[in-house]
Design a protein around this nucleic acid. Structure first.
Lengths: 208, 208
DNA sequence: CAAAAAGATTGAATGAGTTCAATTTTTAAG
DNA sequence: CTTAAAAATTGAACTCATTCAATCTTTTTG
């Protein structure tokens, strides 16, 4: 009556996700075999596939957890942002980027992004895409908020501008994970330069 | 002495690339087996791997040919662009987008992009990335040119702005190929809206 | 509590990409 | 022209991701 079955299910799901995340970190995505993940999680290979549609799904699940944290961290900045567009963007984007490598390697990001592009209809890819949309909304919300405070000129399409900032930071993050030699600081510097024209131009003169 | 070996090699390479491109278009990337590609190209499976490191490489090779064409088409617009930033961007981006589905399916794009992210060090992925860089340069060049003509205000970082336009159109193209229901027109409309704030603000007042 | 139904697990079998030692073909040397 | 060296080709064997029919466990019904 306690739902033994449901309990077992949740527990197995947790064990599989943890085993996979550990193995991906330890040996990399490609070298981690389903057989090994299943063994560490103390289930059979067949059971693994009962919980996740394929190998990629479980990686995207791990990445999704990470993005959830990034979203929560970003919320604190959007809730009480710095006064100027430049500072606010630097703070939010820095928050995103700094958080990105805490739990995941560049290789894990690359694989997750590749999967979300290649199999956009799989459940976890949908979830990943949805999280991306929420990140984008967060940036747009930041710009809209600054507009309400008169830090952004009236008449500007805050949502359109926000989407552009997001697409830019997202695209550059892809470049970042593609290049093993690129540092977080280099990434931030490039994005800051790219953002500057738009950030400056939409700012209200007195606040510039 | 005529280099029989070199000739045979070039011929086999051409046959393999053509066989693969045909098969990808006919049955899709996943359903095209290396065995089938090799058979159509009249070589063995082993020989296929002598010419391409893996299945993805040959798709990226096909896509790269396509991007070369897009670059050439874009050049005609950059060489003599429309007068305003808005019109010039619309023309160039329209050129890019319209060309994208002539030879390749959304599925082929998705797979190629996924590979170029996941295995950035493979020879053809490097090439694809380099082509992306040239597309980005093309957009930046367009903005710089308009600045020389005084259609863009002096003092604006034309390269930074150009990179932002490019990253935005590229990111939205990814969204486009991820969504089978999205049309080219819808894509263009969204990107136009996103570009508008920056495009308007960097334009010289008299030309707006 | 017994038995049937529903839900999960299992691991051997399948299939496709990839490798590599043996073989064949081309080129260079004598 | 012969022969050794270099370069390419070949396909059977290998590795994994994935599937599915048989089996086991939990829940529900009577």
């Amino acid at each position: 009556m306690t739902g033994l079955r449901a309990k077992q299910k949740a527990d197995r799901n947790r064990r599989i996700l943890q085993a996979a995340t550990e193995l991906f970190r330890e040996v990399g995505y490609d070298s981690a075999r389903i057989e090994d993940i299943a063994e560490r999680a103390e289930v059979s290979v067949g059971t693994f596939y009962n919980y996740y549609q394929n190998k990629g799904d479980i990686l995207v699940a791990a990445v999704s957890m990470e993005v959830e944290e990034v979203l929560a961290a970003g919320k604190t900045i959007v809730d009480s942002p710095p006064d100027t567009v430049g500072e606010a963007l630097t703070a939010l984007i820095g928050q995103y980027y700094d958080h990105s490598l805490v739990y995941l390697s560049k290789e894990m990001w690359r694989t997750a992004m590749a999967i979300s592009i290649q199999q956009p209809e799989s459940p976890f890819s949908r979830h990943y895409t949805e999280l991306d949309g929420r990140l984008c909304d967060q940036v747009s919300t930041l710009i809209s908020k600054l507009q309400l405070r008169s830090a952004v000129m009236p008449g500007i399409d805050a949502v359109g501008a926000g989407q552009m900032f997001f697409n830019n930071l997202n695209m550059m993050f892809i470049e970042f994970v593609k290049d093993e030699t690129m540092t977080l600081d280099a990434l931030k510097e490039i994005v800051a330069r790219q953002n500057r024209p738009l950030a400056t131009l939409i700012s209200s003169p007195k606040i510039q």
